[in-house]
Design a protein around this nucleic acid. Structure first.
Lengths: 156, 156
DNA sequence: GGTGACGGTGGACGACATCGACCGGGCGCT
DNA sequence: AGCGCCCGGTCGATGTCGTCCACCGTCACC
């Protein structure tokens, strides 16, 4: 995990479809070496998968909201995760520190759809309340910055 | 934007690297047709880009937090967006309805790094306060569900 | 009922990923 | 300090895949 790996990650985040020759050129390596590096990044799990970024608006998911969930029981079990995963509108689910137990990111088509998703959240065992924050406008949503955090931290 | 397009999007989100022949098989089309559909989805902007999902832990971004930002002025201007985008730890920035003005998603390497990022947020014009929620554990983070929202809504 | 346009199929060509052999530098061992 | 091993990079060859084109069927609109 050196600077070249980080540059490769940045390039791949920008465009994962470009040929390995171009990738190599961008980081000062041959196509073969670039390929080998990327293979190892995948193997180590640094690259989880190559995917496609979809416009939420275009697939009828134009309403974005964050929901704080209060609960009367410990919600860290796998059952809770599975119950939340079963709601397709929920894009992220986190256990948080603070007065609430859970933080959800929900994308629905309309406010009515948002309401329906919230109803399903209430049906999850242990949930006692929710507090919803609706997003009016998004400045940006971007991938993880691969340019290291503290020092040469992170992977192995 | 029919069911086949949605199936294509789901397949591409799962693995954008698979050959078009496999893609076509998955949705009951020939490789050429699948290619043409995907090309149009890109052209219409439904597919924004093909990218790579990076493990945040592996690149030294193991600390995740959400930050509500209070402000003394309207923060919807492009200048605010640019100032926030200049902080690499900020992964998302939204304008929200409610007592706070902004919601940020921040990924740092350590709690010290989180503190440093918060300091930079405070230096943005108009910011008067922050309220940070630290994530303890993430159940899941997944891509947008392309299986439509309300009805046949969304794109054109 | 005719006609035009759109979407799908199959095949041909060229580009690209993928693999192997060779080479150079760095490090540890003796 | 010399020697040999190992990791990583370059170059070249082969097979696969993306990409384009011409043909055909279908549907909708006149």
């Amino acid at each position: 995990m050196d600077d070249i790996d980080r540059a490769l990650l940045a390039e791949l985040q920008r465009d994962a479809g470009q040929p390995y020759a171009a990738l190599g050129r961008a980081v000062g390596l041959s196509a073969g070496s670039a390929h080998e590096r990327v293979r190892k990044l995948r193997e180590r799990g640094v690259i989880r998968r190559t995917t496609v970024e979809v416009d939420p608006e275009a697939v009828g998911r134009g309403v974005l909201a964050y929901v704080m969930v209060q609960s009367g029981a410990w919600m860290g079990g796998a059952a809770t995760g599975a119950a939340l995963a079963a709601v397709p509108e929920i894009e992220e689910a986190h256990i948080i520190a603070g007065p609430a137990s859970l933080l959800l990111k929900i994308r629905a088509g309309t406010t009515a759809g948002l309401q329906a998703a919230l109803r399903r959240v209430f049906e999850v065992d242990g949930v006692t309340g929710t507090q919803t924050t609706v997003v009016l406008e998004t400045f940006f949503e971007r991938p993880v910055d691969p340019a290291g955090g503290p020092g040469p931290a992170g992977g192995r």
